[in-house]
Nucleic acid binder design. Structure first.
Length: 215
DNA sequence: AACGGAACCTGAAAGC
DNA sequence: TGCTTTCAGGTTCCGT
């Protein structure tokens, strides 16, 4: 029953644990999930959904999967699952390719923010990064992908890289516009607006994020 | 195929 | 104080 973990890797919001017998474990944290290390004999914490006991350098450790909202997923499989294989490039591991972004935008009339959050285009871009990147690029999140101007893909790519870098630096969860609707735009002072796209709140500045339109 | 909207869950915060 | 409503860092499903 005991197996040896051969590799742990991440792609976008998915984590993959590969065992020496080829079996795999996939984990997605959803909105509220987390993995927490604990003593093997520690009682389950609130909202604990699963646990894995491992031996590392001779010491037993328990890793607990906690997820109050239960949107996360934990999947055991013998091979890679479609949720994993369908993922686009990972921005950190593979970089953000301007041409790929540009092509994804060009072939879709969906709002640019929804395209950015499509995990097949880039893996791991969620509401925060998409919101921050479009603000940085001065692009209105409602703009149809196919209506973007030349140079927009590059600006959005740059915005994504910056937003990711900021998140990694972790300034105590401070964002330029995410969660700041009603506050002044840090760039031009206009009151930040909010609109729902694909069921997700999208904050943007009507003053400096220009809407691209077709025709 | 593509789009908007609801559904899936719980809990913290805001509103009354 | 306490009950109700709203909202949340994500994804999937369903009807049009």
């Amino acid at each position: 029953m005991a197996r040896t973990i051969e590799a742990v890797d991440r792609r976008g919001k998915w984590l993959r644990v590969t065992m020496d017998d080829g079996s795999r474990l996939f984990s997605h944290l959803g909105m509220t999930g987390s993995w927490v290390r604990a003593a093997v004999d520690a009682p389950p914490r609130k909202s604990e959904r699963a646990h894995i006991d491992v031996v590392r350098r001779g010491r037993a450790i328990s890793v607990r999967y906690v997820d109050s909202r239960r949107f996360g997923r934990l999947v055991a499989a013998q091979r890679d699952i479609p949720d994993w294989t369908a993922l686009g490039p990972d921005p950190l591991a593979d970089g953000v390719d301007v041409r790929r972004l540009s092509q994804a935008f060009a072939k879709s009339r969906r709002a640019v923010k929804e395209i950015l959050m499509d995990q097949r285009v880039l893996a791991g871009i969620g509401n925060i990064l998409a919101t921050e990147a479009l603000w940085a690029a001065r692009v209105d999140p409602r703009s149809p992908g196919a209506a973007l101007w030349p140079g927009d893909a590059r600006a959005v790519a740059t915005g994504l890289r910056r937003a990711i870098a900021r998140e990694l630096a972790d300034r105590d969860d401070t964002f330029f516009v995410y969660g700041q609707a009603g506050e002044p735009c840090p760039r031009c002072g206009t009151r930040l607006s909010s609109v729902v796209l694909g069921g997700r709140t999208s904050v943007y500045c009507s003053g400096c994020q220009v809407r691209r339109n077709t025709g």
